[in-house]
Amino acid sequence: MAHCEQVPPAALTADTVLSRMRALDTALPPRDGVAVFNGVYLTVAREAGLRTEGGRFTDVRGATALDVRFAQRYLAAVDAAEDGRRPPACWRPLFQFRRHPGVRPPQFALAGLNAHVGHDLALAVVDTCRTLGCEPVDLEAEFDRVGELLVSVEERIHDELTPGPDLLRIADPLTHLLGSWSLERARDATWAAARALWALRRLPDVAGEFTDRLDAAAGFAGRLLLTPLPD
């Protein structure tokens, strides 16, 4: 089933999104793969929220709408898994392997980032355009700002979750695995996908097929990122 449909607006705001993520942070065991990603994402989201409240961004309405729609996609995947429903394909590897003893914390975090960027962000741009009645080009500055937030997530994955000097050893398979995924390339592909989905909005069958392919590709990459590694 295609996941290109608009996520219901419900009553989520930036505050309720952060509240949901804090609740997950408290409820989930620290070693749980979803908890690992949620913890990194929550830390960066808190900082981004503070900066937005401080008036740093010129379009707070657009920025907040995109932030909320983006996070809402992740929370919808969590809700689906908790309710026994199938989350989008991009998120399934993380939920399937979340307790695997051979998968290291940086892999969980990077797999979550891959799902969130490779699938959720493009759909969040389309969701936000529908909500605000604008075009993707009108959100380009906000998209770039979200990209800065994602860079912060990626930096925390490397700085806080990777082991010490052992990671620098060229023979460590984790070094190769973390280097196999590029946030910059993923962001570029996501922006192109968002524009394509917006152009296809009056062709729901084609848009749905396109979204399914996007979802499946992100899921395939996520499964590779979660390859169990030796200690």
Results as ranks from 00 to 15, higher is better:
residue 2 A to I: 04
residue 4 C to Q: 06
residue 6 Q to R: 15
residue 8 P to Q: 07
residue 17 V to Y: 08
residue 22 R to S: 12
residue 27 A to F: 02
residue 32 D to P: 09
residue 37 F to C: 07
residue 40 V to I: 15
residue 40 V to M: 13
residue 40 V to E: 11
residue 41 Y to N: 13
residue 42 L to G: 06
residue 43 T to Y: 00
residue 45 A to F: 12
residue 49 G to T: 11
residue 52 T to R: 14
residue 61 R to A: 07
residue 68 V to L: 05
residue 69 R to K: 08
residue 70 F to R: 04
residue 71 A to E: 03
residue 71 A to C: 14
residue 75 L to E: 08
residue 77 A to M: 03
residue 82 E to A: 15
residue 84 G to H: 07
residue 84 G to K: 09
residue 85 R to Y: 10
residue 92 R to F: 08
residue 101 P to R: 15
residue 102 G to L: 01
residue 106 P to V: 09
residue 107 Q to C: 11
residue 111 A to H: 12
residue 111 A to V: 15
residue 112 G to S: 07
residue 115 A to E: 13
residue 121 L to T: 01
residue 126 V to L: 11
residue 135 E to R: 14
residue 136 P to N: 05
residue 138 D to C: 05
residue 138 D to Q: 12
residue 139 L to M: 06
residue 140 E to N: 00
residue 144 D to R: 13
residue 144 D to G: 03
residue 150 L to Q: 03
residue 151 V to M: 03
residue 153 V to H: 06
residue 156 R to A: 12
residue 162 T to A: 10
residue 164 G to L: 09
residue 169 R to K: 12
residue 171 A to G: 09
residue 174 L to A: 07
residue 181 W to T: 04
residue 188 D to H: 06
residue 188 D to Y: 04
residue 194 A to N: 07
residue 195 R to A: 09
residue 196 A to Q: 15
residue 204 P to R: 10
residue 205 D to A: 15
residue 206 V to E: 14
residue 208 G to L: 11
residue 208 G to D: 11
residue 212 D to W: 06
residue 212 D to C: 10
residue 229 L to N: 02
